[in-house]
Design a protein around this nucleic acid. Structure first.
Length: 287
DNA sequence: CTGCACGCCTGCCCGC
DNA sequence: TGCGGGCAGGCGTGCA
C-alpha cells in the first residue's frame, strides 16, 4: 500500500518526465474516484505546464503554471504509470504509438514530452482535487496533517507532546496522521519491532527514552524503504510498472507464525487486530 | 475531546 | 474448475 516511501518513489519517478512538460490532453474516464473530480478538471489541466512535483505525507502535489495544483492520493491500490516517454515526436506518439488505456486507468494525461501518465486505481480509494497553489496547505485534506517524519519539525519533543496522557495504543497513535505524516500499517509495524515496543502499549505510557529512540528508527525505516524504491505488496508498483522490493526486507509485517529474525530469539511473529488492522510483532523482542 | 467502528471498492487467495 | 468468503487498508464520517 502506498505509504510515504512508495509515494515518494512515485514522485521521483514522475518528476523527470513531468517537470517542465505541458499537458496536451487530459482524459477523465470516470466521474469520480473516492470523491467526484473537481469541476471542469480536464479543461483546467489541459494546456497547463507542470512546474514541479511535491509530496506532503501520502499526497503528491503537481504544481501547474496556471496557479493551480493537482492533488493526487493513491489510496490503497493507486499507481501512476508512465509510458511512451521515448522522445519520439509528440504528435506521432499521440496518434500512432501510445498504448490503449488499460482497465482502471481513470485519468490519463498526455504530455508534450511524449509521455503518457495514467492514474490506475482498481479499488478507487484514491483521490484527485485541484486547488489554488498558494492555498494548498490549508486544503481540507492537508490542513490537519502532522509534521513530515523526515523533516526538522519531527522530533522527540513533538512526539512527547502528542503522546502525553494518551491511552491510545502506540500502534494507533503512529497511524494517526495528525501526530506524524505518512506512516501506514506496514512501516508502523516495522518501526515498533525495531524499537522493541509492543503495539498495544498506551502511547502515554512510553518512557522518554523510548520516545527518543523512536524518532531515528522511524526515519531509518522510511529512508531505507525510499532507497529500496518503495515496497509493493500486491498492488503498488513503481511508475515504470516494476514491483518495488523493500517488501523483501520486512521483519514482521505479513510474517505471522514465521520465526523472529532476531538472532537467538526462538519466538514466532504474532498477529493481532487493532482498530480493524493487523499488527505484527515479536512477543519476545517487543515489550 | 477521545477512541473506535464503519464504509468505501476490487482483486486475490484460500477452502470447498 | 468454479464460487463464496475473508482479507487487504487510508481516511472521512459518525457515534458513544
Amino acid at each position: 500500500m502506498p505509504e510515504l516511501p512508495e509515494v515518494e518513489t512515485v514522485r521521483r519517478g514522475l518528476e523527470p518526465v513531468c517537470t517542465g512538460a505541458t499537458i496536451l490532453n487530459a482524459d477523465i474516464r470516470r466521474p469520480d474516484l473516492r470523491w467526484p473530480f473537481p469541476n471542469r478538471m480536464a479543461e483546467r489541466l489541459t494546456g497547463a505546464r507542470i512546474t514541479g512535483l511535491r509530496r506532503r505525507s501520502k499526497y503528491i502535489l503537481m504544481d501547474l503554471d496556471s496557479g493551480e495544483t493537482l492533488l493526487i492520493h493513491l489510496g490503497m491500490s493507486g499507481r501512476m504509470l508512465i509510458t511512451a516517454s521515448d522522445g519520439r515526436d509528440a504528435m506521432a506518439a499521440f496518434f500512432h504509438s501510445l498504448p490503449a488505456p488499460e482497465k482502471h486507468d481513470h485519468v490519463v494525461l498526455d504530455l508534450d514530452s511524449g509521455a503518457r501518465i495514467a492514474f490506475n486505481d482498481a479499488r478507487r480509494f484514491g483521490a484527485m482535487d485541484l486547488l489554488t497553489t498558494s492555498d494548498a496547505d490549508s486544503h481540507k485534506l492537508l490542513a490537519n496533517i502532522g509534521p513530515e517524519p523526515l523533516g526538522n519539525a519531527f522530533d522527540a519533543d513533538h512526539l512527547k507532546g502528542a503522546f502525553k496522557n494518551r491511552k491510545m495504543p502506540i500502534k494507533s497513535a503512529l497511524l494517526d496522521q495528525r501526530i506524524v505524516a505518512g506512516l501506514g500499517n506496514i512501516y508502523v509495524c516495522e518501526t515498533l519491532f525495531r524499537a522493541g515496543i509492543l503495539p498495544t502499549t498506551p502511547a502515554g505510557a512510553l518512557s522518554a527514552g523510548k520516545i527518543e529512540t523512536l524518532v531515528p528508527i522511524i526515519r531509518d525505516v522510511l529512508i531505507e524503504a525510499i532507497e529500496a524504491g518503495g515496497s509493493s505488496l500486491r498492488d503498488h508498483r513503481q511508475t515504470d510498472g516494476d514491483l518495488g522490493y523493500f517488501q523483501h526486507s520486512f521483519q514482521v509485517y505479513g510474517r505471522e507464525n514465521d520465526p523472529c529474525v532476531t538472532p537467538g530469539c526462538k519466538a514466532k511473529i504474532s498477529r493481532i487486530v487493532q482498530s480493524g488492522r493487523s499488527s505484527f510483532f515479536c512477543p519476545n523482542c517487543q515489550d
